[in-house]
Simulated scan of single mutants.
Amino acid sequence: MSAQQWIITVDDDHLDAMDEVVAELREAGLVVDKVLRSLGQITGYTEEPTGSAAGLSAQADRRRPDLSAVTGVASADGARRHNIAPPDAEVQ
C-alpha cells in the first residue's frame, strides 16, 4: 500500500462545523493528521494499493471525488513531498 497525502480546504459556510466535516472525511476514507482550524484546512492521507503508475493515477482520480463530495469541502488537493540534497552533497 502507498499513501496519498491530501490537503482539504473547508468552505467558509462550514468553518463552524469543522468537527462534522472531519467526521465525514474519515467516513470517506481519509486518515486525518491535522485539523488546522484557523486556516480552515485538514491534512491527512488515504491508503492506495501499489501497482502500475497508470493504475495509481486512475485510483487517485477516483478517490478525489469521494473527498470533494463531502459536505463543506471546498477543495481536496493531493499533496506532494519534495526533497533536496543537503548543502554538502555532491552535485548530481
Rank of each mutant, 00 (worst) to 15 (best):
A58L: 05
V32Q: 04
A53W: 08
I84G: 02
D33W: 07
R26I: 14
D66W: 12
A60S: 08
E90W: 04
A89T: 12
V10R: 11
T50C: 05
I8A: 03
W6R: 00
E20L: 06
D12P: 03
D61F: 09
V91Q: 14
A3N: 13
A85I: 09
V73N: 03
K34P: 01
T71H: 01
G55W: 02
H14F: 07
S75P: 05
S52F: 03
A79D: 11
D12V: 04
T43E: 00
A58K: 09
H14N: 13
D16F: 02
S38Y: 05
Q4N: 04
R80I: 09
E20V: 10
Y45C: 07
V10K: 14
E27I: 08
E24Q: 14
S57Q: 09
A85S: 15
D12G: 02
G51N: 07
S52A: 00
A17N: 02
E27M: 10
T43W: 00
D88H: 08
T9D: 03
L56I: 05
L39F: 09
S52W: 04
I8K: 00
P87M: 15
D19R: 10
V91R: 13
S68H: 05
G72I: 01
R63F: 08
T46I: 15
A53F: 02
V21A: 04
D12Q: 07
G51D: 13
A58T: 12
R62Q: 07
V35T: 13
R26E: 12
A60C: 07
N83D: 12
G40W: 00
S68F: 03
L25P: 06
V22P: 00
D12C: 02
A54P: 00
E24P: 05
V70E: 13
E20D: 15
Q4G: 01
G44P: 01
V31E: 12
V31C: 03
R37Q: 03
G29I: 08
G78V: 06
A17S: 08
I42C: 02
H14R: 11
R62V: 13
A23E: 15
T43H: 12
E27L: 13
L56Y: 11
V31N: 13
S52I: 04
R37Y: 01
G55P: 00
L25F: 10
A58C: 06
G72Q: 02
A54S: 08
D88N: 11
I8Q: 08
H14V: 11
R62W: 06
P86M: 07
A17V: 05
L67K: 14
E27N: 14
A76C: 00
M18A: 11
M18W: 02
Q5Y: 06
T46D: 10
Q92K: 06
T46A: 14
H14Y: 10
R63S: 01
W6L: 01
P86F: 11
S38K: 01
